[in-house]
Design a binder for these strands. Structure first.
Lengths: 257, 257
DNA sequence: CAGTGGTCTAGACCACACC
DNA sequence: GTGTGGTCTAGACCACTGA
């Protein structure tokens, strides 16, 4: 009955490392189409997407099927549902779901924002590990950003951020400093790159001389080292971030579910 | 139409710090009943629960409503659905969903299991912070366990585990050592306590003399300090765990979604 | 008020596991 | 084959938003 193209199974099939067409239900095909529209920029972050009824008739399926597709996408933080208003493309520019990526909380006091200071933003050839992580060709152009986060005037975080030069052409330290709100919000509005998901590798390391000076700690002091690889739609990596956190008055919070 | 008791709204209502009855849909009431059955031990970890049809007729609702309740519980890892077989109570004793709580991975090689060594298991009065975390009265009896995890013969993790003595009466280091499989599996089968969810606070710290000797690192070496508070049904805290991880050849992996 | 997402129902059929 | 969960549909009504 539904008039859809081939049941391509390009979606989450956890157990499928083997062959086989791996049956893909209708709602996943709908979901794939919706993700495609998000990725192409047809609907931008913060915008309202068509109603479930309209999408249902557009795709020639029932509202329930569209609903199930949207349900999954809402759970993955791709979309945000608001009863009575509609369904919106999720965005990092909102205040409500903040601190989704910065997991550092102070030992005492509220988890208020931290003061940002951008030290530099340089363009250079990608070092080997950076190129590998970002799936670039060796020698491709990348941006390297250094910044700190401070609370109560004391630096707590030093970040080294690597971005592929291609989608982020024209990004400067000034541009970063002038933008109010989360960095990932700027990436969305200015460069059309939305961060969806990230993996982090966390270690305890000893502060080297340069880091110690910036964070105002002793050389050799224990620091939390967080290496984050962030992805946009379709699991494409677009940011490598290395952070050094002074955890003497802050901690990294995590939830295991 | 549905013949259910009062629409008690004791479930996840994130925005409700204010007053109001906070309308609770049918499927959440069903979910609350199912959680109650799990908590009471009517269905034990690993067991098959009644089919959706049977639950639907038992509660006097449609299958779709039961389905939605079970969907949420499956997402929270309370239940596991298996097509063609039925719905089972989730358990830590299974091999498939391992490493849900131990997030430490080796830099190279597969994330194979680690050798456990239990150093001691003592009964004592709860220190103030432990009592507070576990919501016990000051001076209540608790168990303190020390253990290490090793890979390739080298110690990587030192854990200090605090458990309330009441549900865990009779737990000994021998009992722990003899049980094959994850510790939380033993807690389920022997003591009827299932860990559902945990919060972790992570820091980088310098190794003290005692820890350094156990982990065979230098005094002052940077270690990952992980403080975990684990909860069972209804968010009741039942375990406080403090871990020190040597991250020179391992890292703590995390996913941000 | 109209329009949206949210809930609930009833029934059909499919995919899968076990006998 | 029988029984389970998984998908899909169609329609009704509820709760919420904003004009």
């Amino acid at each position: 009955m539904p008039a859809l193209p081939a049941p391509d199974s390009m979606d989450a099939a956890p157990a499928a490392a083997s062959a086989g067409p791996a049956f893909s239900p209708l709602y996943r095909q709908i979901k794939a189409l919706l993700v495609k529209s998000l990725n192409s920029g047809e609907w931008k972050p913060g915008e309202l997407i068509p109603s479930e009824q309209e999408l249902a008739s557009r795709f020639g399926v029932s509202q329930g099927t569209v609903r199930k597709a949207i349900d999954e996408m809402a759970m993955e933080n791709l979309l945000t549902r608001r009863q009575g208003r509609g369904t919106f493309v999720a965005t990092h520019a909102e205040q409500n779901i903040q601190y989704r990526f910065l997991r550092l909380a102070p030992d005492k006091g509220p988890a208020s924002g931290m003061a940002r200071h951008f030290m530099d933003c340089r363009r250079m050839r990608a070092p080997a590990e950076v190129a590998r992580a970002l799936e670039l060709k060796p020698g491709d152009s990348v941006l390297q950003i250094h910044r700190t986060l401070s609370r109560m005037g004391r630096p707590v975080v030093l970040d080294e951020i690597w971005l592929p030069a291609t989608p982020f052409k024209g990004l400067t330290a000034d541009r970063l400093a002038q933008y109010a709100g989360p960095m990932y919000g700027l990436f969305e509005t200015e460069f059309g790159v939305r961060m969806i998901r990230a993996e982090e590798k966390i270690r305890a390391v000893a502060a080297d001389a340069r880091t110690a000076e910036i964070l105002q700690v002793a050389v050799g002091a224990p620091l939390l080292n967080v290496e984050r690889l962030s992805h946009t739609y379709h699991d494409k990596p677009v940011e490598l971030r290395r952070g050094w956190y002074d955890t003497s008055t802050h901690y990294y919070r995590n939830e295991l579910n």
